[in-house]
């Protein structure tokens, strides 16, 4: 138990430091990399909670797909760091709001009924949380699963609607038209004498 607690605090510290770095670093590539680190340590925390499946999913999906895409985008756009207009009064207001939030969260998390000692009991050996998830995902949560699918479809439609641009003057290949072409449409036989261009 002591070792696990030690690991918890280790990962927790790294997570917080990496998350703070992700929002404060000026270099976007470094920020994205520290975001990866924070996600990875979050996955390790889930592992400590015996949520192995979700933990691996976090690494595979978020780090493997989403954040790598992020990195690509960050590296594709210009490298120069954007000049951020720092307005002093915004900063004061923002820090005040942040201070209030931190105080509120601290008060809530230090409340006796929300202490981190209230950890779940270790699951029995044969318990598999992948199986447990699978048994409810398409039964108890069928509606949520379908609604999530609809949300993804809406996102795809929206993204394509915003990026697809059909220009009337755009010369694209149209295989159907290409294969419908017949000889008499394209080929004109002349008798070899020069004739004025038509």
């Amino acid at each position: 138990m002591a070792f696990q607690t030690l690991l918890f605090y280790l990962f927790g510290t790294v997570l917080l430091a990496a998350a703070a770095a992700a929002v404060t670093l000026r270099n976007m590539v470094h920020a994205a990399l520290s975001l990866i680190l924070s996600f990875f340590t979050a996955a390790m925390l889930w592992m400590l909670l015996e949520a192995e499946f979700l933990s691996i999913l976090l690494v595979l999906v978020y780090i493997g797909a989403v954040l790598v895409l992020f990195l690509f985008v960050v590296m594709m756009v210009e490298r120069h760091t954007p000049t951020i207009h720092r307005r002093r009064n915004y900063r004061i207001v923002a820090s005040a709001v942040a201070a209030v939030m931190v105080a509120e969260l601290g008060m809530a998390l230090l409340a006796p009924d929300f202490s981190p000692t209230a950890q779940p009991l270790p699951a029995p050996l044969e318990y598999s949380n992948t199986k447990a998830l699978g048994s409810v995902l398409y039964t108890d949560y069928a509606l949520a699963f379908e609604a999530a699918a609809v949300a993804l479809l809406v996102a795809i439609v929206g993204a394509i609607a915003l990026t697809l641009r059909v220009r009337p003057d755009h010369h694209r290949q149209n295989p159907a038209r290409q294969s419908r072409v017949r000889k008499q449409d394209r080929l004109r036989l002349t008798d070899g004498r020069s004739e004025p261009p038509c």
Partner: peptide
């Protein structure tokens, strides 16, 4: 979905479907 949600997940997903359809509608005049 929001109108009939009896579960916080249904509620949130309904809200997100609505919001995701509003963002591109606003941005569509490119």
């Amino acid at each position: 979905l929001i109108s009939g949600a009896e579960h916080l997940i249904t509620l949130y997903l309904g809200l997100e479907i609505l919001a995701l359809s509003l963002y591109p509608m606003i941005a569509m005049v490119r």
